[in-house]
Design a binder for these strands. Structure first.
Lengths: 194, 194
DNA sequence: ACCTGAACACCGTTCAAGT
DNA sequence: ACCTGAACACCGTTCAAGT
């Protein structure tokens, strides 16, 4: 008579998926493992999500929002160079703290799994403002792309274990950030303050 | 009486796997699809390869060698700035020409799937020489890491479709390469020629 | 309204049996 | 020495049946 009460929730399912992602990579995020973790049978998941790609998309969306929140305080720095330094550090810290989630963002996602682009757009806009303060309006998009390409490339190589020649990886990161700030500043078309 | 003749080869299997990778991503590289393509049943593949991770590793190894060959001519440039320009262009062209293979290189590979590191080491050594000519010995490792991080980050974001704000992506790449060359040159500890 | 077991088409992998 | 069909344990997903 009484309809069956909900025994889980979309949020719990997404959280379980993300935990499995960090523990065992994307392959470990099976519908059955997720179902086990939230205490339900696999077919029940299809009441809350269309399919596995939709689950992956939901995880990616959460991650993107969280990364945006982690980066946002960097934009309050007065000096654009400091903004870049803080952003870079926070970006890298996020990737180290959630490597599985971070890598998911740059996995070629199936079309169905593309996360909502709002958080993305907001972060892009914030970064563009910093870039403009650094190099001027004309080159701001190019500068923003250089900065994001570097940041993503560096942490992604770190996570993939691609820095195999020893040395101080933290120092290499700091050196690179300073080189980028200097290089971009030197190309600025902003009129100097007077 | 006569033992069964070989109906395929390890090379044919690896080539089939790579073709499937480009056509449909890593998920499309199933043992059955590979077997179909080389004209054999799936269990026969296990005569030449331990398992699917070994197949993926073999593909990655081939790709890495090919990338090394594509990059090598860049190191003949007299000017280290030119070497960086040529390397960057060739690196990007390789990724555009074989996006599936390229992305495979930076997928978190299972330990079993780590390609032989020789080709890797040779390319690293070549790049270090260029970096040293650009910034001096002390900072050469840091500089090499900045350059590879940028190059990988840029093309990987391109392939993931992460540059969604329009603009001229080619121009952004050229701008970034010039900014890096200038920034690194400015930090050089090499004594000026004279 | 949600949950479940049973079923389907697919994986990777093993292995005994064939030539 | 290599190839094969059959089998096993696993996937994702659908659906009729239960409450």
């Amino acid at each position: 008579m009484s309809p069956a009460p909900a025994r889980t929730s979309r949020e719990a399912i997404v959280a379980a998926g993300r935990a499995l992602l960090e523990e065992g990579g994307l392959d470990a995020v099976t519908m059955q493992a997720v179902a086990d973790r939230v205490g339900v049978r696999a077919p029940s998941l299809y009441k809350r999500l269309d399919d596995r790609p939709a689950l992956i998309a939901a995880i990616a969306g959460d991650v993107l929002e969280e990364l945006g929140r982690a980066l946002h305080p960097a934009f309050e720095a007065d000096d654009p160079g400091d903004a870049v330094r803080i952003m870079a550090d926070r970006y890298r810290a996020f990737a180290h703290g959630s490597p599985g989630a971070y890598q998911l963002l740059f996995t070629r996602l199936l079309p169905a799994a593309q996360p909502a682009a709002e958080a993305n757009a907001r972060a892009s806009a914030d970064l563009l403002v910093v870039a403009e303060r650094l190099v001027g309006r004309e080159r701001s998009l190019e500068a923003a792309r250089l900065l994001t390409a570097f940041a993503h490339g560096f942490v992604s190589m770190e996570l993939a274990g691609a820095f195999r020649l020893g040395g101080d990886v933290d120092a290499a990161f700091r050196f690179a950030v300073e080189t980028l700030i200097e290089g971009l500043t030197a190309r600025s078309t902003n009129s100097p303050p007077g």
